[in-house]
Design a protein around this nucleic acid. Structure first.
Lengths: 219, 219
DNA sequence: ACCTGAACACCGTTCAAGT
DNA sequence: ACCTGAACACCGTTCAAGT
């Protein structure tokens, strides 16, 4: 066959298959030939729909961003709204990344020109300024939340340790006696740390917010 | 030449050259052939000193971990010490990563069996427990600090936006009108966000610490 | 022990050729 | 317009051969 009457491929089909391959086997497993084979097509065909392999991965990443709920920012317009919105958003964001951890390194490169990534950045910034944060602070909040959430997805703590008791010699690492157990409890550990960190972050931001708009002095 | 009387290579020389290549041209630029050429040697020679290319990158990453100052944890043994220690450590850690941003994705995979990475995890955990944090909380602090610090290095906010005004159509992204300026001010923006986030995190942890050991009730 | 060139099974991407 | 096979310049890694 040369050209079929109905196109065999579409951008959507390619992105879907690429996403499945990334989820199942990781970023390194995605080659144009492997992906094409999964779609029943030859390697170079993909280049009729995307300029590069990287553009395909960007599209996969953006599809993940698109699943992050932003609706909690809609009603934000005062001092009492921003905290719960940020909390709910952070959890939605993290959940989306946890569903597709292998693509996170691509997301970490930034929104660039990816529409869903940009919508996300726009929504946070808009909501924080609406809540009364000065623009420079709103930018910082968007940035630091990004650090924490992406960091939690890309730099899992528990998963970073090896499930091998002998790897952690007490003579070298006196406090890592239990570290080999982390791998087993990794969801528990990483989720606990995420919630603890998120709460600390929001508590700390609340202090800064209150310092920004001081209570009227009591008589 | 076949085998020279003095070895041409050593693990240290390889790690040093690999680090320079990563810093100068990025992770993707490191191929065994390119690295070997920089060392005046043929590709397969490297396999006499490292089992895989990945092991070389792990060694480069560990050399970066080794430059993180841990001395501030030495004297920690009470309630007033942990916060400044954590603050100083976070800055030292971030500075080390900022010097070698291209290797951060390798570091993000976790300490695994890398000695410097393990020493770092050991020191934080040891200091937090010494300061009176319960072990489960100490683990969480190590994890959440890791998320934030690695996240700030791997998921730069300012660098994530494109330096192109037309990329951010106000109709699509009403609040990103200034986003194209972020690239220019990226150090300022990312450093400001890091400090703001770190302060918030430590403020929040301080609240948790105080809740843990309540003040003796006032009569 | 430590280096070499040849070889293997892969890559991403280009391009002329087909319909 | 959209697919194909052939081709190019690369990869990581193995291995027999050399000293």
């Amino acid at each position: 066959m040369a050209r079929p009457r109905k196109p065999l491929l579409s951008r959507d089909r390619i992105v879907e298959a690429a996403g499945e391959l990334v989820d199942a086997e990781g970023l390194e497993a995605v080659s144009t030939r492997r992906l094409a084979a999964a779609l029943g097509v030859s390697g170079p065909s993909l280049y009729n729909h995307f300029r590069t392999k990287d553009a395909i991965l960007e599209a996969v990443a953006d599809a993940v961003s698109a699943r992050v709920d932003l609706s909690m920012f809609d009603g934000v317009d005062g001092p009492s709204d921003w905290r719960p919105a940020l909390h709910a958003w952070a959890h939605s964001y993290r959940a989306a990344l946890a569903d597709h951890p292998n693509i996170v390194p691509v997301l970490a490169r930034g929104p660039g020109r990816r529409p869903a990534g940009l919508r996300l950045a726009d929504a946070v910034f808009g909501a924080m300024t609406a809540a009364g944060w000065p623009p420079a602070q709103a930018t910082r909040i968007g940035a630091l939340m990004r650090y924490f959430i992406l960091g939690s997805a890309v730099a899992s703590f528990a998963q970073g340790f090896v499930d091998d008791e002998t790897a952690y010699d007490p003579a070298d690492y006196p406090h890592l006696g239990q570290a080999h157990l982390l791998a087993d409890r990794r969801h528990e550990v990483d989720e606990g740390a995420f919630e603890t960190g998120l709460t600390a972050l929001l508590d700390g931001l609340t202090l800064q917010y209150e310092a920004l708009r001081p209570e009227p002095p009591r008589p």
